[in-house]
Amino acid sequence: MSSTSPGVAAGPHAHRDDVGSRLGMWLFLFTELILFGGMFIVYAVYRFTHPEAFHLAAAELDTFVGTVNTIILLTSSLTVAMSITAIQEGRKTFALTLVGMTILLALAFLVNKYFEWGHKFDVGIYPGAPELLAQPQGVILYFGLYFVMTGLHALHVIIGMGVLIYDFEAIRRGTINATSFVRLESGALYWHLVDIIWIFLFPLFYLLH
């Protein structure tokens, strides 16, 4: 592919346009940015109008679990980024290992999230819980945002895992290979976006003392 003329390469992939594919993926990521961005604005407004309640509520979150999940996601971003170099070098087994590690790290993130949420439910913190509704308005708003934003983020982690499993299978079958790997690049781009969203969620919810 690289040796032939760009854009209109001859052969079985005559209509392939990798730059166009990546640009399409970026355009989709911008819609995700606006989706989460809107929620961050709602967060900013309620934090501004209920500063004390937000600080009180944030004390309920476990900074340690949040930090561990941050490290997990950053590491998963590293492994998926490295998998692209591996596939470019034609190292199929290494690429499979790296994508596999990314999927396992995503799973680890979700397991942590499961226990974190489970603990919150046990102490009566979930949307509509009587214990929570007895709290000040700002605390209710904080946890409403916490569940919606980290929940939507977790949904993205699940979708990202699905995409990466699909990419893993495509590498195994050879559909994704050293000369054609834009599908893996798109999957990786999506995964990095999930990481970036968490980079902002983490300090705004967990590090508010």
Binding site: M1, S2, P6, G7, D18, V19, T85, Q88, E89, E185
Partner: peptide, 12 residues
């Protein structure tokens, strides 16, 4: 697109 010959092979 046609002016950037290496556009098809992203930076490694």
């Amino acid at each position: 697109h046609t002016r950037t010959p290496h556009a098809e092979t992203p930076h490694k």
